[in-house]
């Protein structure tokens, strides 16, 4: 009660997500051919720890306190993690998308939800092509269950987190 989104909101999210997936498919070839910055070193498909660091950043991965870095005006993606830029996710084939999804879900099984994790999960779900392979199907169901579990434990209604969890549960289940 009070945590669940309305049916109308869910339907809107499903429609928007579908449009996002279509646009992504249309532009995948274009973004695949775009030049990547020299600091973007994508891990190999099997490198679970490498992908966790790449997506979430060394600060979250190593559970370090976030220290404000005033003298550094640019964003250090090694520390804060690379966001799911189209030029990055378009380079990932379906096997890699599924593997990284699995790595991040493994992470989420033991750790807290963060905005960085939410963005990557959303982006990887958008990259999954249908028909879903059985392992992908099983993975995203596991993801929705974990989101539901974390949501149920949330007592103080950290609003931003509930919204993000609701979004993932909605996209997976619908």
């Amino acid at each position: 009660e009070g945590y669940s989104p309305t049916l109308k909101w869910q339907q809107q999210q499903v429609a928007s997500f579908s449009a996002v997936r279509q646009s992504l498919n249309k532009r995948r070839n274009h973004w695949q051919s775009q030049h990547l910055d020299s600091n973007v070193a994508m891990p190999t498909s099997e490198d679970e720890e490498g992908w966790k660091k790449f997506c979430l950043g060394e600060r979250i991965y190593s559970e370090l306190d976030v220290v404000s870095d005033n003298e550094n005006l640019g964003i250090d993606y090694i520390k804060v993690g690379f966001p799911p830029f189209l030029s990055i996710v378009s380079r990932m084939n379906q096997a890699t998308v599924t593997s990284v999804l699995e790595y991040l879900i493994n992470w989420f099984e033991k750790k807290n939800f963060t905005p960085e994790l939410g963005r990557w999960l959303y982006a990887l779900l958008a990259c999954l092509e249908k028909p879903l392979l059985p392992e992908a199907h099983s993975l995203i169901r596991q993801l929705a269950r974990r989101c539901s579990e974390v949501r149920a434990q949330e007592e103080n209604k950290n609003e931003e987190q509930i919204l993000a969890l609701n979004l993932i549960i909605c996209l997976v289940s619908r």
Binding site: S23, L86, S87, N166
Partner: peptide, 27 residues
């Protein structure tokens, strides 16, 4: 459907996610 080329820059998926999460507040 309108042409969404303008909003489909390298950050399009990030913006789509942030927009979806923000939209709940208005639901």
């Amino acid at each position: 459907q309108s042409d969404d080329s303008d909003v489909w820059d390298d950050t399009a998926l990030i913006k789509a996610y942030d927009k979806a999460v923000a939209s709940f507040k208005n639901a």
